[in-house]
Simulated scan of single mutants.
Amino acid sequence: MNETHLIPAALGLLAFCVAAETVQQLAFKSGADRASDHGGHPARVALQPLIWLGVGLWVVESIAWVLVLQRAPLSLAYPIMTATYATVPLGGLILLRERMSARQRLGAGLIFAGVLCVGLSGL
């Protein structure tokens, strides 16, 4: 493993992990919202297909993350994985029509800029 650079396979797996984590969290939120519309009982939550989509993505993403760790240094991979701190709220804003304050948008932008800096250092 090259300790200072990301190989293309690791970069692709990392991109998948960020996307999967983003969709997973949005699925959990949507599934939880749908369950609360019907009383919010834990059994209702467990019956939501979107919750199961999130669980399935979590399993697949966990396997992909282990593969990333086999191919990339943690000092590069983990900071890039934190892009989800920007992509999940952005997905909530766009897909779930949630609101973000200007300060929240600025924070998400700063996180994305930091991830970009770390990611570019590994290319």
Rank of each mutant, 00 (worst) to 15 (best):
P42R: 03
H38C: 08
Q70C: 12
H5K: 06
G109Q: 12
L95K: 13
V45T: 02
Q70L: 15
L96T: 09
L74V: 09
L11Q: 13
L76V: 05
P89V: 00
T82I: 14
S75H: 12
K29M: 00
L69E: 03
T84C: 06
N2I: 11
M81I: 06
R34S: 13
D33F: 13
P73M: 00
L14Y: 03
I94C: 06
L123V: 09
A27S: 09
L120P: 15
A46R: 12
H41E: 03
L74M: 11
D33H: 12
A46C: 14
S62N: 03
L57A: 02
R97N: 07
A72K: 00
R99L: 10
D37L: 10
V18F: 01
Q70I: 11
Y85P: 04
C117Y: 13
G109V: 10
P42L: 03
R97Q: 12
H5P: 04
L95A: 14
G56V: 03
Q24G: 09
Q24P: 10
S121M: 10
T22D: 02
V68R: 10
L90T: 13
T4A: 05
Q70Y: 14
R103V: 10
L26E: 01
G122S: 06
C17M: 08
A32L: 12
Y85K: 04
S121L: 14
A64N: 04
V55S: 05
R97Y: 02
I63F: 13
V118K: 00
A102R: 15
L57N: 07
H38A: 09
P73S: 00
S75L: 15
E61C: 07
G92Q: 04
L69S: 02
Y85I: 08
P79A: 02
W52D: 03
A113T: 06
G91F: 01
T4N: 07
A86L: 09
T4Y: 11
G39N: 14
F112G: 11
G91M: 08
M100C: 12
